[in-house]
Amino acid sequence: MTTETRSLRAAEAVYEHPLARRERILRTAHRVIIYILLLIGAAIILVPFLWMVSTSLKTERQLFRYPPEWIPDPIAFNNYIDAWTSLGSIAPGLTFWRIIGNTLFITVLAMFAEMFSAAVVAYGFARFRWKGRDVVFFIMLSTMMIPPTLTRVPSFLIWRELGLLNTYDPLTVPAWFAWGPAYIFLLRQFFLTIPREMEDAAVVDGANTMQIFFYVMLPLVKPAFLAIGVLSFQGNWNNFEAPLIYLNTTQMYPLVLAIRFFQQSLSKEAPKWHYMMAMATMMAAPILLLFFMAQRYFIEGLTVGAVKG
């Protein structure tokens, strides 16, 4: 902006027409209202969060203080260790490292298998014409409607018949069979956008299907591949239902079951909210970290089904 135009603007502002002035005020008011509404929403979102973290840093006596203290004094970082000590005293062998190890073991195995099988299947749906493809694809999408309630009992019986109850198998091995229709759908949408010439060129260069898949196609859909990666990590880390059904040795529990075990065993006495909030914060922290690092992929994974479909 040059000095001349600026002075012109200034002149306009001085000799503003009353109607224009009214419009300007209205527009400003409009903006202000928008930001106020957004801030109210942000407070509704953030206050429970802060309360969770704040509670997790309180001593037992500070818990029920009135009015509530937002920044506890002293700050009890020890809760994050004491919660585990107290859990270990209820169920021997339930240590922090064991539980984190279990959770990561389940999550990583299931995630890895889920990502690869979904990519392979989506590739088959997207890039090859074969008889009955669209029918099979339609059936796959309609399985999304089937509530897990329906297959819970028979699946349990199948694993019991195989003698694999109370192992990690039901939580990890079936992931090889592309059990997430949403992930397949998402990847397929991305595969469809890649021009055919990419494959044709690779074929001319003498690449086989597997080579094309790994060296040409997968790098091209990397954003979508990583998107289902983070969604799958989140899904398996947060998964509560399957471990609840298949695991009963407490030492084999993932984090979510350990927390529930803790909550239940405390229900008779005064609930130790500071410990529980410390546990909840610990369970949420890796997901939040992942979210902040890979935000783009979360949003991508979330919106592709609704907007591009």
């Binding site: 392979v120 299947v121 749906f125 090859f128 399985t143 079936p174 090889w176 397949i184």
Partner: peptide, 13 residues
């Protein structure tokens, strides 16, 4: 090829 790639899902289904 297309059918073979979808087989994991079919077996799982």
């Amino acid at each position: 090829t297309g059918f073979t790639l979808v087989v994991p899902w079919i077996v799982g289904f």
